[in-house]
Amino acid sequence: MILDLHTHSVRSDDGRAKVANYCQWIKKKDLPLDGVVLTEHRQFDAESDYRELEDQYGLLILKASEVETDYGHVLVFGVNEDMVHAFDFARIDNPLPEVLAAAKSCGGFAVPCHPGRRNVGLFSHYEERGPVDDVEVVEIYNGGSIPGEDERSRQEADRYGYRGIGGSDSHIVSRIGLCATEFADDIATMDDLVSALRTGRCEARTWRT
């Protein structure tokens, strides 16, 4: 089962894609995706209900968030009422250890994304400040990376023993599915996804040329 774990819709300030248009694009282009996770910037979209689209297109649509920390951007999966009160999703300087701890204690899972990127990537901060405990998984394939960024992500992930996931980081419809994550087991819910990320029964994939 393949999911794009990092996508943005019009609910993000720089997102220009409607979720329905993602769905019809995936089907029209016959992309090998079984679903997407919406990771809107600095917020959790508790309101949108995509069940009708899921049924119409036969896709899994889950919701998470991309938050900003002092070590770069981080995807948080399994967001719930407890987590949104544990730290301020809108802040741009959340301490990474606090985000990792909050995600864990609330039953979720946090994954630093595009870690090879300057300033907003985990590894650019490791140079000066050293590694952070409790990071287990990072995004090693990101559809928005410029040349060199994903290479660095993979090298550093290997060095620190982190597992990897992939996501397109799409902000427009036609970028969906450039990178994704393949899961060994079926994923039907966010709980399934968090479990799979914890156990590592998944593998990053890329279709970027």
């Binding site: 220009r16 248009n21 410029i146 427009i172 419809v173 970028r175």
Partner: peptide, 19 residues
Amino acid sequence: EIDVTIISETSGATGVLGT
């Protein structure tokens, strides 16, 4: 609706994207 992009042919970086 149309997605539009401008990409550098030397670096491969997306300079402009939009709709």
